[in-house]
Simulated scan of single mutants.
Amino acid sequence: MICRDHARYYAEGADRGAGTATQVADRHHLWANLGDATERLVARLRSQWVPPAPEKEKVVPSEAPEGRRVRRTRERHAAVHALMDKGMGHSQIVAELGLDPKTARKFMRAATVEELIGDRRTGRQSSLDGHAAYLIARFNEGCHSALRLHRELTERGLTVSERTVRRFVHRLRENAKPATRPPVPKVREVTKLILTHPDNRPESGRVLLKQLLHRCRELDEARELIARFASILVHRRGQEDLEQWTTDAQASRLQELRGFATGLRKDWDADMAGLTLRWNSGPVEGHVNRIKMLKRQMFGRAKLDLLRKRVLLTS
């Protein structure tokens, strides 16, 4: 028995060196090859299964956004009157909020914050009061460039600095409610969900996969074929089911799985043996991984003679 992967040189070497041996395709490599094909398939179909982006919400404030100074005034007024409601006096409020005594007294005397703000809701943006509606409309249309908006205002005959326009646009962005998009799963994440046994998928993964399969029928078709192949591989039912599976895969509209099935045909005897007999390359692969681990541990630290001793003594 010779266990190997699909590399042509392994097959040629086995034919030349042991022509009467039964060649067995390693199941680990068969599953890895199918996994690579699945990842390419998922990547190709990404535009179909990716969650749709929500519609962007426009910023439609009834008036120009408030400046930082106005917002701070509102916050201080609310804080001062909250302490007053608790029974605190002037000196206690000054100590609690760290305000200047005159400032604290002014806030205490104002019954409403509107008495302090007056007509200066937009802070230092008074030069834009007559053009705020135009700027908001242009912002909602998708023009978020302060430089371009400044140029348009200049063409409308308004003399205003670019810095003033930039501050106004910045406050519009702060007031805008950004459109939230559901997280987009990565190609490898979706591939892993498809290749994982249904009983081992987390609940969140099952819900996500169900949503993706609903959006993309081809992905659902691929999942069904892959699940069938996994059952053949695990239960070694090559003699009973491999022929039908390969025929179905080659007849599907999934070019990646058609290519995988064509590869099975090219090395049919070894693949049939791998999916029927108990032999596999597991012990060999385990030794190879152990040697690679030892090599990485010693990278740049020792020479080949010590590596040789470690490999032999731990066998």
Score class of each variant (00 low, 15 high):
His6Met: 14
Thr20Ile: 13
Ala21Glu: 15
Ala21Gln: 13
Val24Ile: 15
Ala25His: 06
Ala25Met: 12
Asp26Trp: 10
Arg27Asp: 09
Arg27Cys: 06
Arg27Lys: 11
His29Val: 09
Asn33Cys: 12
Glu39Pro: 00
Arg40Ser: 10
Leu45Ser: 06
Ala53Asp: 09
Pro54Gly: 10
Pro54Val: 06
Lys56Glu: 15
Lys56Met: 11
Ser62Gln: 12
Glu66Gln: 09
Gln92Ala: 12
Glu96Pro: 00
Asp100Ile: 01
Thr103Leu: 12
Thr103Lys: 07
Phe107His: 11
Met108His: 00
Arg109Val: 10
Glu114Cys: 00
Glu115Leu: 07
Leu116Arg: 01
Gly118Ala: 06
Arg120Tyr: 02
Arg121Ile: 02
Gly123Arg: 03
Arg124Asp: 12
Ser127Arg: 15
Asp129Arg: 13
Ala133Pro: 02
Phe139Gln: 04
Gly142Trp: 08
Ser145Arg: 04
Ala146Tyr: 08
Arg148Met: 13
Thr154Asp: 10
Glu155Phe: 08
Arg156Leu: 14
Gly157Met: 14
Val160Glu: 08
Glu162Val: 05
Arg163Leu: 09
Thr164His: 05
Phe168Asp: 01
Phe168Trp: 05
Val169Leu: 08
Arg171Tyr: 02
Arg173Pro: 00
Glu174Gly: 03
Ala176Tyr: 07
Ala176Pro: 02
Thr180Ala: 14
Pro182Leu: 14
Pro182Arg: 15
Lys186Asp: 15
Arg188Ala: 11
Thr191Cys: 08
Thr191Asp: 07
Thr191Tyr: 07
Ile194Val: 10
Pro198Met: 10
Asp199Asn: 07
Ser204Val: 10
Arg206Thr: 06
Val207Gln: 14
Leu208Ile: 02
Lys210Gln: 11
Gln211Asn: 10
Leu213Ala: 10
Leu213Phe: 03
Arg215Leu: 07
Cys216Arg: 01
Cys216Ala: 08
Arg217Phe: 03
Glu218Ile: 01
Glu218Asn: 01
Asp220Gly: 08
Asp220Phe: 01
Arg223Val: 01
Arg228Val: 03
Ser231Glu: 14
Ser231Arg: 13
Arg236Gly: 05
Leu242Val: 04
Leu242Ala: 08
Thr246Gln: 15
Thr247Glu: 15
Asp248Arg: 12
Gln250Asn: 12
Ala251His: 13
Ala251Val: 03
Gln255Arg: 14
Leu264Gly: 00
Asp269Trp: 02
Met272Thr: 02
Met272Pro: 00
Leu275Thr: 07
Leu277Cys: 04
Arg278Lys: 09
Arg278Trp: 07
Ser281Arg: 02
Glu285Ser: 02
Ile291Ser: 07
Met293Ala: 12
Met293Gly: 00
Leu294Trp: 05
Lys295Ser: 03
Leu307Ile: 04
Thr314Gln: 07
Ser315Glu: 06
